[in-house]
Simulated scan of single mutants.
Amino acid sequence: MRFFGLKSCDTCRKALKSLAEAGYTPEVIDVRADGVSAADQAAMVAAVGDAVVNKASTTWRNLSEKERANTPATLLAAYPTLMKRPVIQHDGHWTVGWKKDVQARYLDQP
């Protein structure tokens, strides 16, 4: 399991704690400190499309209309914290966020 997030993100901390309690030991990639490879960005976008971009974030609100028109991959390359967090890769599947559906996927069946 690979976990893409931010150390300073409350949702990411809650998710990591819950995953640990469920028996997972994810490889944590801090998108700000560690960065995200172009291959991982491409895989995320291929799997979940523009859902990977957090359009409710402060970063998104501060972008110009011209910047917002870029592809999700271009946006993530320029602004890694624009990623909706956490993004989790496990057993060939990608999930975005930490809503009930994602929690059920990982916490009900480790």
Rank of each mutant, 00 (worst) to 15 (best):
A42G: 11
V53N: 02
A46D: 15
D30P: 08
A42Y: 04
I29H: 12
K17D: 14
W60E: 04
D34G: 08
D10Y: 01
E21S: 13
K84Y: 05
L76W: 06
A47S: 15
L82C: 12
G92S: 08
A38C: 07
W60R: 10
K66M: 08
S18D: 15
K84A: 02
W94A: 02
A69L: 05
N62Y: 07
T74G: 07
P80H: 04
A20E: 14
Q89A: 08
N54M: 04
A15H: 01
A42P: 05
Y24N: 04
A33M: 09
H93D: 14
A43T: 12
I29G: 05
T71C: 05
R85V: 07
I29K: 12
A22T: 12
T11C: 05
T59A: 07
Q109I: 05
L76H: 05
V102K: 02
R85N: 09
V48E: 07
S64I: 10
V52M: 06
Y79S: 06
A56Y: 03
F4E: 03
V28M: 09
A15C: 01
E21W: 02
H93S: 13
A77V: 05
A42F: 02
P26W: 01
T81C: 02
N70F: 13
Y79I: 04
I29E: 04
A38H: 10
Q103H: 05
S8L: 03
R85D: 10
N70P: 04
Y106P: 07
A69K: 08
M44R: 10
C9W: 03
V45S: 13
G49K: 13
Q41T: 15
E65K: 12
A46E: 15
R68A: 11
A38K: 13
D91H: 10
M1N: 04
T25D: 13
Q41E: 12
K99N: 10
A73M: 07
F4L: 15
A43H: 03
L63D: 11
K55M: 12
A22G: 13
A77L: 00
A51F: 03
A20I: 04
K14I: 10
C9A: 11
D108V: 00
Y79A: 10
S37G: 08
L19V: 08
I88G: 00
V102T: 13
K66Y: 09
T95H: 09
V45L: 07
T59E: 02
K66T: 15
L19A: 09
T95C: 00
E67V: 14
A56N: 14
L63Q: 12
V96H: 05
I88N: 00
I29W: 05
T58F: 02
L16A: 06
A56I: 05
R2L: 01
D91T: 00
S64H: 10
